[in-house]
Simulated assay, not measured.
Amino acid sequence: MTTVPTTRGSAGGTTGGSDRARPAGILHDSVSVFVRELRPVVRDPFSLVFSLMQPLMFLAFFGPLLGGMTGLPLDQAFQWFVPGIVVMIALFGTAMTGSNLLFEIQSGAHERMLVAPVTRSALMVGRACKEMVPLVLQALVLSGVAVFFGFRPSLPGMAVGLAILAVFGVGLGALSYALAIVSRNRDWMFWTVQQGLTFPLMLLSGMLLPLEAGPRWMQVLSRFNPLTYMVDAERALFNGQFGDPAVAAGALAAVVLAVLGLTVGIRAMRNSI
């Protein structure tokens, strides 16, 4: 009896079985996809600087305004404000990443990737993990600029905070890619959902203004917003408060979102045609 070998990463149903049988192969493929997705960023680093324009505008104009509204000295206002802007970078940067995949789907590049000798799970994992790099680099640049405004972060706390934020970015990026796959024949759906969720999540997280001064219904809704826990955790860590319960809550929110995002994203990628 002749056994016909299967090709790992083929467009057929063998991919799912390969994902389960060859974890080392998935890791290798994920690294390959990660490197492929990172090349455009390395070739054009100015794209990272350009995407920082909006957070820098908030830093330059909204930060001093917040200090005047709260009566806090500028340096103390920035100790509260900058970690929220770092989370904003993660929100806007990773939520938009699905647009790149949507373009590849429409141009036919994604279809060629599906028949490449890599597992479909790796196509999602590698893409999602790539989002950690620009996210962390942008956060470092923004924090460096904020130093000129009196911002003084705890360096160990900042390192832990960025690690948690990177995990969060993996999950959010995977969900964005999954949305792009679902919206492949209706690109307007991607932008409608993306815009419809991004701004409410941002406003209900307290990253710009303290929600304690807001109406009760906003405070209740914020408890269901994972970004709220991320913002609170980043503020505690950037200020060196490792024992704050917000740190554990933020880490848990990041891990849950990463697991959820990768689960949904991998399933969408496996069913992608």
Results as ranks from 00 to 15, higher is better:
V86T: 12
V86H: 01
V87Y: 06
M88R: 03
M88P: 00
M88S: 08
I89K: 06
I89D: 01
I89Q: 08
I89M: 09
I89P: 09
I89W: 00
A90F: 06
A90Q: 11
A90M: 13
L91Q: 08
L91S: 02
L91W: 03
L91C: 02
L91K: 05
F92R: 06
F92M: 12
F92E: 06
F92W: 14
G93C: 00
T94D: 02
T94G: 06
T94C: 15
A95D: 01
A95G: 11
M96P: 00
M96E: 10
M96R: 10
M96V: 11
T97M: 09
T97C: 09
G98Y: 04
G98Q: 04
G98A: 07
G98R: 05
G98S: 03
S99H: 02
S99L: 04
S99V: 10
N100S: 15
N100M: 12
N100H: 14
L101G: 07
L101H: 02
L101W: 04
L101A: 11
L101E: 06
L102N: 05
L102P: 02
F103Y: 14
F103T: 14
E104I: 00
E104W: 15
E104C: 07
E104S: 09
I105W: 10
I105Q: 14
I105L: 14
Q106M: 08
Q106R: 13
G108H: 03
A109H: 13
A109R: 15
A109L: 15
A109Q: 13
H110D: 07
H110K: 03
E111F: 07
E111C: 00
E111V: 07
E111H: 12
E111R: 12
R112T: 13
R112K: 11
M113G: 13
M113V: 12
M113R: 11
M113K: 10
L114G: 10
L114Y: 06
L114E: 01
V115H: 05
V115M: 12
V115L: 10
A116E: 08
A116Y: 07
A116D: 09
A116F: 08
P117R: 06
P117T: 09
P117L: 10
P117K: 04
P117D: 08
V118F: 11
V118A: 09
T119N: 09
T119K: 00
T119A: 08
S121V: 03
S121R: 12
S121N: 09
A122K: 08
A122Y: 03
A122R: 05
A122I: 05
A122G: 07
M124E: 11
M124T: 05
M124V: 08
M124N: 12
V125W: 03
V125Y: 01
G126P: 01
G126N: 03
G126K: 02
R127E: 01
R127G: 11
R127K: 13
R127V: 03
